[in-house]
Design a protein around this nucleic acid. Sequence first.
DNA 1: CTTGACCTTAGAGTGTAGTCCATGGTTTAT
DNA 2: ATAAACCATGGACTACACTCTAAGGTCAAG
Lengths: 140, 140
Amino acid sequence: MKGLTIGQIAKQANVTPDTIRLYERYGLLDTPSRSMSGYRQYPEASVIHLRFILRAKAIGFTLKEIGEILALRKTSIHTCDDVRKKAEIKHQQILGKLDELRKLEVALRTLIDTCETHDPNDLCPIITALEQADKTQGSK
Amino acid sequence: MKGLTIGQIAKQANVTPDTIRLYERYGLLDTPSRSMSGYRQYPEASVIHLRFILRAKAIGFTLKEIGEILALRKTSIHTCDDVRKKAEIKHQQILGKLDELRKLEVALRTLIDTCETHDPNDLCPIITALEQADKTQGSK
DNA sequence: CTTGACCTTAGAGTGTAGTCCATGGTTTAT
DNA sequence: ATAAACCATGGACTACACTCTAAGGTCAAG
């Protein structure tokens, strides 16, 4: 048996074999070669590829989006312009997400700060802050 | 008809009546009183309550977590600590996501830069750029 | 040469957060 | 008085990302 089994790369990437088969079906991983008995045989590089997927997922990309990012890799030289444009769109989306997340972070930090300095006799300021945000920040 | 209809509070909170019924089933909204014909009748305060839910959701809480927070609010002042701890856990998660997102932004920007300056005689540099992103950003 | 850990497939089930539908009753405006 | 717009219910459906099951084949150790 040359190459790694599905269980071996699964363990190295800290996922289940099921997840890897799923990613394969979703086109995130190339269909690997098979042993004579039908076992999947992965090269070492698959673990790196898999970790790339997991990192992208961890920051909030859907599997579909990750598929699009990975598809950039497969596109031929002749469409390099299209590839770059796709990458740029992704980049803009990432910048947008960063912006949203930063706002979220500030909002939540402010809430916690308020909470830490609050008089124990008062009501929980996180709840009152959320309620007041309704009033001060108006409709959406 | 005293009180607001489901459609009226839905419009004020910018959600659908379906969503409100769902929140009711999930225990996030008190079951409202009914008119003689069976229509839900909401007090004005329900809009505030609903916006509380939506804001908490926007900050990154799941409906389940919001349910827990609302339950805490009903019990007593002494559970403020629990609310703060939940908020702190969320905050840490957001910081982690921000970090990962920044890394991905750099990786993708690098990819685009490389692509823009690449020699048309070379292979599309996207392959190498993505692979290098894998290696430089290490394991998880 | 059997046992147990692994592999294969297709397909069903889970949880989240809605969204849509059919069917029927109610309210409101013209 | 009738049409449009609303409300009610239960249940089906969606998308996402797994996760598990059944039923079987394979491989290494003792």
